[in-house]
Write a protein that binds this DNA or RNA. Structure first.
Length: 364
DNA sequence: AATCGTAGCAACCGCAGCTCA
DNA sequence: CTGAGCTGCGGTTGCTACGAT
């Protein structure tokens, strides 16, 4: 098990990224894609490790990030997904377009967890705290397994594996029906009544949600959390609905190769409206492998083509179009960086806008 | 005005898993 | 088969802003 080489390079910079560093990274990835992350800092002229560059890009600089405060629907979905997946933040994030695992993890730890506890729900088990306390007395009570889920890998190996890898759309029923039926009884009902509901039944195999009628449902933690009633289910924001109703969940297992296609090439929802896709196909942000990257970086034809396509597309991104776009739609823009929402003051907003302008000004 | 506690968030760390020579 | 190199993930830390006292 090799440790990342950056761990041994002491002279590399750490800590917060400067606007200049951001600019270098954006410029580089815009032009060449990231290729091998380990080679990015060298090629981009950064004194950072590749790991740090990757993290910075994924969590902060990537233009398809939504940013902004989480909607109630998003929070509810996070809770529901957490009930199934446990702390699988990346899998949860995969169902929330424009959100990063880090962002969701932070939200969970700083906000949702506390709110659930205040409402008498154990954030780990999603059961009422009183039940959890009872469970603790029972030695057979469930603990998280190695996958961070609550399934017993010995007695329910198939279900545990399912919850872990979460093959969301699958025509073959899972081995342990009871698990999901019990978990999603409310889900089933809600989805049946409300075709546009974002409830988790949409994430389950079709054959599953259409099978056995569920018994009387206990309230889900997410429902307790939001105190929803079936008559006044909250409206979904359009982009959210489209992403969720879309069978993005039928995507093949996330490999390095298909990750970019699934998550970047098509706007993370399987449709063709992602700005990473053009008529001519997917953009090559990270698609080039290490060997090809070097060729591209060296100014080969392939690299130039990438550059042209990339810049054309990049210039259409609102957050690179100048101050007005950011000011006019602070909650919608790709460039809606974390500092443009919530409790941040106007001063902070302006300060960070200047920062972003500095970083991106050369594009506009 | 100063201090303290808290919330939110960016970034780091260490590990696991995958690929490939 | 083995180990190095790399990516990705989840847990944790540390910084900053903000509100309460």
């Amino acid at each position: 098990m090799g440790r990342h080489s950056c761990c041994y390079k002491q002279k590399l910079r750490k800590g917060l990224w400067s606007p200049e560093e951001d600019e270098k990274l954006i410029k580089h990835i815009t032009k060449f894609g990231h290729g091998c992350w380990s080679s990015v800092p060298k090629l981009a002229g950064l004194e950072r490790c590749g790991k740090s560059c990757r993290l910075r890009w994924i969590n902060y600089l990537r233009p398809d990030l939504k940013r902004g405060t989480f909607s109630q629907q998003e929070e509810k979905l996070i809770i529901e997904l957490h009930a199934v997946l446990g702390n699988k933040w990346s899998q949860i994030a995969a169902q929330l377009p424009g959100r990063t695992d880090n962002e969701i993890k932070n939200l969970w730890n700083s906000s949702i967890k506390k709110k659930l506890r205040q409402r008498g729900i154990d954030p780990n088990t999603h059961k009422p705290l009183s039940e959890v306390n009872d469970d603790r007395k029972d030695p057979s009570s469930n603990e998280k397994n190695s996958q961070g889920s609550y399934l017993d890998e010995k007695t329910e190996p198939a279900a545990a594996a399912m919850a872990s890898s979460y093959p969301l759309i699958d025509n073959s029923p899972p081995a342990t029906h009871e698990f999901f039926l019990n978990r999603f009884v409310t889900t089933h009902e809600t989805a049946t009544k409300q075709p546009d509901s974002h409830h988790l039944s949409r994430f389950l195999p079709f054959s599953y949600t259409q099978q056995t009628p569920p018994p009387a449902p206990p309230p889900e933690s997410a429902d307790l959390f939001f105190n929803t009633d079936s008559k006044s289910s909250p409206e979904l924001i359009p982009e959210y609905t489209s992403s969720i109703s879309n069978p993005l969940l039928s995507a093949p297992p996330r490999t390095t190769a298909n990750f970019h296609q699934n998550n970047w090439g098509s706007g993370n929802n399987g449709s063709n409206n992602g700005f990473f896709q053009t008529n001519s196909g997917y953009h090559p942000w990270g698609l080039t492998d290490c060997t090809k990257t070097q060729n591209s970086v060296n100014g080969g034809v392939e690299g130039e083509q990438d550059y042209i396509k990339w810049n054309d597309q990049f210039l259409q991104v609102p957050f690179l179009m100048g101050k007005s776009s950011i000011e006019s739609k602070p909650e919608v823009n790709f460039g809606n960086h974390e500092l443009y929402h919530g409790h941040q003051s106007v001063d902070t907003y302006n300060k960070h806008f200047q920062r972003i302008s500095t970083s991106y000004g050369h594009f506009s």
